[in-house]
Every structure is written in C-alpha cells, then in structure tokens.
C-alpha cells in the first residue's frame, strides 16, 4: 500500500513539475498556411497579355495614374512577398539573378547584381474593386513563388523619389 502510494505521488509530482513549465508552445499557423477566404478567379488571367513593358523601362517612362502592363520576375530581396497581403516586388527580366553554380541559397534577392536592382524594381499590389490590397498571401492565392515570371496590369503610382508601385487588377503567371 505504501509503495503504491509513493508511486502515485511520484507520478503526480512528475506531471505537476512538467505542467508548471510556463513555456507556451505556439500553435498559431503561419499566414501562408492558413486557409484562403479570397477567390483568385477575378484577378488571374489565363491568356498572356500583349504589349507588356519591362520594369526598367516603366520606371523611366511611366507617369503617376497611368495604366500599364508590366512584366518581371518576382524577387529583389530575400523576402519579396508580404505575408497576409497579395503584394510582392518584381525585377526586370534583363537583370540576371545569382547563377545556380554560385550556390546562393536565395538567388531571388539578386545579391550578385544588387546595384542594378535599384532602378529595375517595382512593387506590385493586387487590389480589389475598391482599390484596397487583397488580403491573402499571393503565393497561395496565385500559386506563385520567388523567381516566377508574371505579367501584371493596373494603375501606376509614382512619387518624387522615383518609386514605382502598380495597383494591379489582373495577374498572368507565365508557365
């Protein structure tokens, strides 16, 4: 009887000790792993748009409020996507990303050609009818990833510092 009581006490103490640990394991899912509440159909086009403008050229000629169709490669930094929003950066296709043989783990950050990226990058945000950015991760919504080639159509937003943002209403993902 004494042994069984001691055993029970030890087991209880073990559980109490383990239970006292105040480290709370995080169970929240990353934004990209959460189920989507947004339908991609209104934004995704299946036929490749014609008359596209490379990002570098657009940065030189595009005015604020002008409509444009830009073509580029997703990248420009180690994290080109914004979690929770359908927004990302694209780089002109003429800028080469790090070659595979260089062993760069994140070739989409263009670390080997960073000085050229500055004048050949644009921010793309996919917007809804009201003009607000779509609140869903672009990777999950459109099945895109870093270094995917995309064509986006929308309205340009320029500022005095030369930044280019495209509020895009449609996106075409090159196969």
């Amino acid at each position: 009887m004494r042994i069984s009581f001691s055993t029970t006490l030890m087991v209880c103490l073990t559980f109490v000790t383990l239970g006292c640990n105040d480290d709370q394991a995080s169970v929240s899912l990353p934004e990209s792993a959460k189920p989507l509440a947004v339908d991609a159909t209104p934004y995704l086009v299946t036929t490749e748009p014609a008359d596209t403008t490379p990002v570098g050229e657009a940065r030189e000629s595009l005015m604020d409020g002008e409509s444009a169709t830009l073509i580029g490669t997703i990248g420009g930094s180690s994290k080109p996507f914004i979690e929770g929003l359908a927004a990302f950066t694209i780089v002109d296709q003429k800028i080469p990303c790090c070659a595979a043989e260089e062993g760069c783990p994140t070739p989409w950050d263009y670390c080997c050609t960073q000085d050229q990226v500055k004048d050949n990058i644009a921010t793309i945000k996919i917007v809804d009818e009201s003009g607000s950015p779509v609140t869903a991760d672009a990777r999950q919504l459109f099945g895109i990833s870093e270094l995917s080639q995309v064509i986006v159509s929308g309205t340009a937003k320029r500022d005095d510092q030369g930044n280019l943002t495209l509020a895009a209403s449609t996106i075409y993902v090159k196969p």
Partner: peptide, 16 residues
Amino acid sequence: RTASSEVDLFCMERKD
C-alpha cells in the same frame, strides 16, 4: 497582429 502587413507594404513601396 495582421496590421504588420501594412507596415511591410509601406517599407516595400518606399524603396528610397
């Protein structure tokens, strides 16, 4: 916690 996307977007847009 979801508001961080807006700050991220601002930093992404204002490259300068």
